[in-house]
Amino acid sequence: MGTVFDGVVEEYDAGRPGYPDALYDAVVELSGVAFAGAVVVDVGAGTGISTRGLLERGARVVAVERGGRMLGRLVARTPRGGVGAVLGDGNALPVRDGVADLVTWAQSWHWLDPVVSVAEARRVLRPGGAMATWWNTVDPESADWLAAYEVRQAEACPAYRGPALEDWGPPPSAAAMAEAGLAPAVRWIPWRRVIGLEDFLLDMRSHSWVASMPAEEVEALVARQRTELGRVFPGGVLDVPMRVYLVVGRTPEEGG
């Protein structure tokens, strides 16, 4: 079992952003689940970026990831207390019925079946539990240089799916939750990321549309982006406007 991301574990772990405190605050507000002591199933946990954020806030986390190398990096990078790491698929969660307070998908729900994954989350949640999907995305409308950066990716990557495309939008997790009988709450959370140029390029390498390209094409794209971004940020430190798209669905209390 593996994914395209197993080939870019180092880039993913070093380059992908974490999440702002405001994201975790919003999850608690909209889900009604306090993290301290809560059982959270983190689906598609990758190298553990969201897993560690949840652990730091007192949750007990079951990290589910289908990429073996990704899961190995999560285990190596994550304190052992309070976390269980399981090789598994979000379409068939290796978790018992009714044991979780919260099911989360950070940057991962769009890789799963929209109907089956939500049904699986409902199965493992206790009555009154909640599910939450979220995605970090850049905000190119706030910076011309960032819009140009995304256009260069779109030109170079046949599989590109991002904000440079006219029909781009966040994955339809809100619609999937609504179809499952939930009443999803949606929120956009703005924040800013300050990051070195080389780490920013590692982030780019970790995206599926880049990771799936031939190596020589990836290196050509990286070289072009390095040159163009270096003109905008000659000091080598980028100030990147970001947004997190959050969707939370709460399940009814037993008998509700």
Rank of each mutant, 00 (worst) to 15 (best):
R96G: 09
G88K: 00
V83K: 03
D97P: 01
G98T: 05
G81H: 08
R80K: 11
L74V: 07
A85R: 07
V95N: 00
G88Y: 05
A92K: 07
R73P: 01
V75D: 14
V75W: 02
G88A: 13
G84M: 15
G84T: 13
V83C: 11
V95G: 03
G98C: 08
A85Y: 01
A76K: 06
A92M: 04
P79L: 03
D97V: 04
L102W: 02
V99M: 11
G84C: 09
L87F: 02
N91K: 05
G82H: 04
V75H: 02
V99R: 15
G82L: 12
L93F: 00
G90E: 02
A100G: 02
A92Q: 13
L87I: 10
T78D: 13
V86A: 04
L93I: 09
L102S: 03
D101V: 12
D101S: 14
D101C: 10
A76R: 10
V75N: 02
R96Y: 04
G90N: 14
A76E: 15
G84S: 14
G82R: 07
L93P: 00
G81M: 02
A85D: 15
V86H: 13
D89W: 09
L102K: 01
V86Y: 01
A92P: 02
R96K: 08
T78L: 12
G88L: 10
G90D: 00
R96E: 13
G90L: 05
R73E: 06
A85H: 07
G98E: 13
N91V: 14
D97I: 07
G82F: 01
R73M: 06
V95T: 09
D97W: 04
V86C: 12
V86S: 10
V83D: 09
N91L: 13
P94G: 09
A92W: 10
G98K: 06
D101R: 13
R96P: 08
T78G: 10
G98Y: 11
A76S: 12
T78I: 08
G82D: 13
R80N: 08
G82Y: 03
D101N: 09
T78S: 12
V95F: 01
R96W: 11
L74H: 01
V75L: 09
A92I: 04
D97H: 14
R80Q: 10
A92V: 03
L74A: 11
A85L: 09
G90Q: 03
R80W: 11
G98L: 07
G82W: 15
